[in-house]
Simulated scan of single mutants.
Amino acid sequence: MIFTVYPVISSFILSFQEVRGVEKTFVGLSNYTRLIHDPVFYKSLINTFQILIVQVPIMIFLAILIAVGLNSTLIKAKSLFRIAYFMPAITALVAASIVFMILLDEHFGLVNYLLSLIGLDHIPWLTTPFWAKISVILVMTWRWTGYNMVIFLAGLQNIPADLYEAASIDGAGKVKQFFMITLPQLKPVFIFTVVMSTIGTLQLFDEPFILTHGGPNSATMTITLYLYETGFKFFDFGYASAIAYVLVLITAVISWIQMKLVGDNE
């Protein structure tokens, strides 16, 4: 009640107020109408959706692929691989981001050094808009693929082996079994991971904050990063609260659409 319900109600009331020091003035819907004419808000919204559209499908695809591989009887030392893939999800994000800043440094980074060995030019990973987005996507994919892999692996282990045996008897190969048995049986897990990954990406803050500080030229400015700067850099808490509730609405609508598109009709 203290740490969840009260802040939710308080911030909702705050979104209708203008805060100056300790004084709060009721301003109605002005904070929300201000959003309509805010180009930085639209820029952060576009950036967030660009990252979402690219990163989530890649991450889900890799998670399914790795989970199927680790569920195979051909793989030995499965526990070791599971731990290795899951470790990024529990690694301190600040430490991981600093490592990636070193790896992706334009002049002295290991990645560009390896590219130079095969004759490729250095890539300005963190200093140009396009590559800055790619860098954020790489870090997010590295961090969360293993987390989703564990969820898919749990789903795979709950699929009855009888289904595969029956399919083999009927002459279905491994590829056909994957598309006709594995994917349909994983549908609830797939819905869960897609929705949760979408929500997580819409709340993206840590990676762009540490790696690029929202730059260059606001190319990696996400909604939550803009919310943070509005509230704790410019101390415009009323407007920041309005941004937060618009983000909640956007997240709810997208999650509902995904459930309708991917979920069962009933």
Rank of each mutant, 00 (worst) to 15 (best):
K174D: 10
T193S: 05
G263Q: 00
W125E: 04
V56R: 03
S197Q: 08
F209T: 00
F86T: 07
T33N: 00
A252Q: 11
V248P: 00
V68A: 13
W142T: 01
S11W: 07
L247P: 06
L29K: 05
F209L: 06
P184G: 08
L138A: 12
E266A: 08
I90D: 01
V68Q: 10
V56Q: 06
T127M: 12
F237W: 14
P160T: 08
V22I: 10
V248I: 10
I75N: 06
S30L: 07
Y42S: 12
I60Y: 02
R143L: 08
A240H: 03
Y147Q: 11
I75W: 04
Y228M: 10
L70I: 14
I159Q: 05
V5T: 15
F100K: 08
T48K: 06
F178Y: 03
F61T: 15
I90T: 08
T182S: 03
A95F: 00
F234D: 08
I102V: 13
A92T: 11
G69E: 06
E23W: 06
I250V: 15
L93E: 14
D236P: 02
W144Q: 09
V54S: 14
A63D: 04
V99F: 09
L104M: 14
E106P: 01
G215L: 10
G238M: 13
V189K: 00
A132S: 13
G200C: 05
A67G: 05
M259N: 12
V139I: 14
V68T: 12
I58D: 09
K174C: 10
T145E: 07
L70T: 11
F179G: 10
G69R: 03
T230M: 14
Q50I: 15
A219P: 01
L126T: 01
S241V: 11
L204V: 08
D264P: 12
L103T: 01
W125T: 02
I75A: 02
S168W: 15
A84P: 07
F178N: 01
V56K: 10
I9Q: 02
T222R: 05
I9G: 09
K24S: 05
H107V: 11
V19W: 03
G215Q: 08
H213T: 06
F179V: 03
L227F: 08
V246P: 04
I159L: 07
T33H: 00
S135G: 03
I123Q: 08
I257H: 02
A252K: 09
L35R: 01
A89D: 04
L186I: 05
E165N: 12
K76D: 14
F152H: 09
V150E: 00
Q185P: 13
K133H: 01
G146T: 15
E165R: 14
D264G: 10
T145G: 12
T73N: 14
I169S: 01
E165Q: 14
N31E: 08
K133I: 11
I159S: 11
P188W: 06
F12D: 02
N71L: 12
L225P: 09
L14Y: 02
T251G: 04
I151M: 02
V99P: 09
S168M: 14
T91H: 00
T182R: 03
